[in-house]
């Protein structure tokens, strides 16, 4: 993980364009953000709608589950809330909104990212994969198959995050043994307590050696 997914994406013309617009808008927003008094005062003076229009007008391009999307989002919208509330991709879950539980894990340019800690506009031009993007037609991803086989869940709420994290865990080379898996999956909480079954599922997929 890390910040490299911000720089490894080529900026084509249109992405650069929208980024400039974004920056133009954000200069106003930053000024507001650092002086909360201004916001309150603006709201009292019925300037709220003007502020809102500035918020509203941020274009955003992303590729989500292989589909190019041209969006218009408020810069304060997290990637998680964008997926769940605006795009109806509710497979990605909100469990804490603080990056502490892992339920919101998605892949950004192939790496696991906590979508609740990430503003949508930070992902301009990037490739997002959610749990809904793992299946190919009717064919489940091997990790999804393994979770079913090993019963790696109960209520199912943490499951999409566990699966996204599990795939990344193997790709990162952090699934060499059960101890590693436990360590590098510890950011994904399962309150039902299906941990040992999840470890079994990941171990099996790892041992099968498929490219994920």
């Amino acid at each position: 993980m890390g910040d490299n997914h911000y720089s490894d994406q080529p900026e084509n013309e249109s992405f650069a364009e929208s980024r400039r617009n974004f920056l133009k808008n954000t200069s106003l927003l930053t000024a507001i953000a650092v002086t909360p008094g201004v916001v309150a005062k603006a709201a009292e003076n019925d300037l709220g709608e003007k502020i809102a229009s500035a918020f509203d007008k941020v274009p955003l391009k992303m590729e989500i589950n292989g589909v190019k999307q041209q969006l218009s989002v408020e810069p304060r919208v997290t990637l998680l809330d964008l997926l769940r509330e605006q795009l109806n991709l509710t497979g990605t879950k909100k469990g804490c909104d603080y990056g502490q539980c892992g339920a919101c894990t998605v892949h950004v340019n192939g790496q696991r990212v906590l979508s609740c800690l990430s503003l949508a506009v930070m992902h301009e031009g990037q490739k997002i994969t959610t749990i809904e993007g793992l299946t190919k037609g009717d064919q489940l991803h091997p990790m999804q198959e393994a979770f079913i086989k090993h019963d790696g869940f109960q209520c199912g709420y943490c499951t999409p995050g566990q699966i996204m994290s599990a795939i990344a865990c193997i790709r990162e080379g952090h699934a060499e043994n059960e101890a590693d898996i436990r360590e590098f999956m510890s950011g994904n909480i399962c309150r039902c307590g299906a941990y040992p079954n999840i470890v079994d599922a990941i171990t099996e997929v790892k041992n099968n050696g498929q490219k994920l």
């Binding site: 497979g91 879950k93 909100k94 809904e132 079913i148 086989k149």
Partner: peptide, 21 residues
């Protein structure tokens, strides 16, 4: 037996209370 709702849960298709649009 594998869970009868397993597929819905591993594909994100299972809908919880905040997920009805």
């Amino acid at each position: 037996l594998d869970r009868v709702d397993g597929r819905l849960k591993v594909t994100g298709a299972a809908r919880y209370s905040a997920e009805y649009q």
